[in-house]
Simulated assay, not measured.
Amino acid sequence: MSASREDVWLALSELWLDNQLDEYSHRHIARVLLASGLSVEELQSIYLEEVAPLLWGNHWTTAGVWDGFDAQWLSAGCRRFQQRRGSRWHRWRCRLLRRLMTYAAEPEWQQVLLRMAELRG
């Protein structure tokens, strides 16, 4: 089974939900990312330049989304940022805001990377 880019966006979006992820969640996300066939470097770019710019505000609101983002809304937003990845302005903005965009998601991302390494064996 091959995961599409939309599947990758949806899996990564779980890192910005307003709840604590468990071991099962980390493994599920890792499996989806591995099924995409994309390199870790490309997945890192998707995480930082397509998903984070769209979802980072969820961690900064008092009552953020906790049960899952709407898949159509997520795909449309991530697609917009995917198209901007070639822009110097977009890359600079993502670098400048990286800590703000990933402060709560980064520990979860690191857990997913560990699970990916374990699953690859």
Rank of each mutant, 00 (worst) to 15 (best):
R31Q: 11
P107L: 03
L43R: 04
S2K: 14
A117S: 14
S87D: 15
L12K: 03
R115S: 12
A52E: 00
R79S: 07
A63K: 04
L48E: 14
L119N: 07
R88Y: 15
I29D: 01
W66L: 02
R120C: 04
W109K: 03
P53H: 00
S36P: 06
Q111S: 12
R27C: 07
S39D: 08
G68V: 06
E6G: 05
W56M: 02
S36F: 09
A30T: 04
V112Q: 00
R31I: 00
G121N: 05
W92G: 01
S39M: 03
R5K: 13
L55R: 05
R31Y: 01
S4T: 15
R5Y: 02
I29F: 00
R79N: 11
T62Y: 00
V8T: 04
G57V: 09
V51G: 12
E42T: 09
L119A: 14
V51I: 08
Q110E: 09
A76G: 01
G64A: 05
T102E: 01
E6Y: 09
L21C: 10
A11S: 13
T62G: 08
W73Q: 10
G57L: 12
R91K: 08
L48F: 06
D7S: 03
A3I: 07
D70G: 12
E23T: 12
R84I: 04
R88A: 15
T102V: 15
V112M: 06
Q44H: 12
L17Q: 09
W92H: 01
E106M: 14
A35G: 09
V112E: 05
L43W: 05
S4G: 14
L114Q: 15
Y24N: 09
S87I: 01
G121D: 04
W9Y: 15
R95M: 03
N58C: 09
S2M: 09
S75Q: 06
T102Y: 02
W89K: 11
A117H: 11
W92M: 04
R91G: 09
A63R: 04
L15T: 02
Y24H: 10
S25R: 07
L113A: 12
L38Q: 12
R91T: 06
A76T: 12
S39C: 03
V32G: 12
T102D: 01
T62N: 04
E50P: 10
E108Y: 05
W60T: 02
W89I: 14
